[in-house]
Design a protein around this nucleic acid. Structure first.
Lengths: 205, 205
DNA sequence: GGATTCCGATACGGTTCCGTTCCGTATCGC
DNA sequence: GCGATACGGAACGGAACCGTATCGGAATCC
């Protein structure tokens, strides 16, 4: 159980004295937050006591690292989603299918967490901003780039509205994988391909 | 302010004695729930105390009608959404535009409430069932019927997957109007028409 | 070895909410 | 008028959680 050194939050503050903070405790706390949310605790109902208990950690250990619940949740959210995936560039259709296939498939925990974040995101402008910048916008940009190549190659209409097209591609997948908006889609096994094909035909040059 | 007689919960129990329950209080309680949620209170953080205070009602008056918060929220949710809208039947394209245009436009309160319901819906199978039966499924069925007429008239492919098509039409609108998934779509003024046109071209016969 | 800091655990006072119970008053059927 | 019930309001004991403080012990640097 190697205890890794923590990077000081403020670069100038070289804290070398005393026992270093346990990175194990750090990880355990973040994991506890994700676990609890996955188990059905709302973001808002998350209690520091429950987090500490689940992580096997004293409350003071949490407050030593984060000022409050908001800061802790922010770090957890950013950690949850890695960088946006990159398409292989094989073809327009293949790239879109590739990108859409991973929606909600990588980390099952993320799927559970997202709906719990919705109230927060729709209430707090700050949460909305972070969510946009760290989660949704980078992924949209990847898909925009794929579409731009399709326009450049002449496959797609030149006057294509990128935002609308991206939304038409992503939205059905998101809504199904995140909140199971229509349970009947469970039985559609090639949902991604169908969506891509209809949209591509609809916006073909 | 006429005080309407309450229907007894149990049909056999004819309660004629004493002062009847105030339907005004009843309405005030339901309105208070909606108001509080609209103002940013999560479903889960809703307190009976706050509801009573907002409604100008004693807590006992609430507990006299509902066994707990869950029952109260259920009645509120069902009341929130009226029956599904009906299209005028002018044309396939016009009907779809008509149906999609009202998404999130009728009652602004519903738009605010929906994201707050997501955690509940994704956690509780019972909440999911009610939400499906009372809210989403009836609206999907209306749209399916419009598409069936399009298939019958030969405008649409005969082997059309209704569920996928409905999802492709509704999802971009829902995601934008409900949680503003992509803020750049704010500036697209004919979003509904664009979505409808792309899908119709994509699934044309 | 000594100083320092972090560790998990526990306790604290304060706040909020729960669901119930009791007021004194108001409104109904008879 | 009288009995029955609902009303708004206030108070209750109990529970959960907040953020802080303090404990004895452990880990690290000098």
């Amino acid at each position: 159980m190697t205890e890794l050194a923590e990077l000081p939050a403020v670069p100038g503050a070289a804290r070398t004295q005393g026992r270093p903070r346990s990175s194990r405790a750090h990880e355990a706390i973040l994991e506890a937050v994700l676990d609890l949310i996955e188990e059905g605790t709302t973001v808002e109902a998350l209690s520091m006591e429950a987090i500490a208990a689940r992580a096997g950690v004293g409350k003071a250990t949490i407050y030593r690292r984060w000022a409050g619940k908001d800061e802790l949740l922010l770090e957890t959210l950013v950690k949850l989603k890695g960088p946006a995936p990159q398409p292989s560039g094989e073809s327009l259709r293949a790239d879109l299918i590739e990108l859409l296939s991973v929606v909600g498939k990588k980390d099952q925990r993320a799927v559970r967490v997202m709906p719990c974040l919705m109230p927060e995101v729709s209430r707090s402008p700050e949460a909305y901003r972070i969510w946009q910048e760290a989660i949704t916008e980078p992924r949209r940009e990847v898909m925009r780039e794929v579409l731009r190549r399709g326009v450049a190659s002449g496959e797609l209409r030149a006057d294509l509205d990128l935002e609308v097209t991206v939304s038409m591609l992503i939205s059905p997948l998101l809504l199904h994988r995140m909140v199971r908006w229509n349970p009947r889609l469970d039985e559609v096994d090639d949902l991604v391909a169908q969506v891509v094909d209809v949209v591509l035909r609809g916006v073909a040059a």
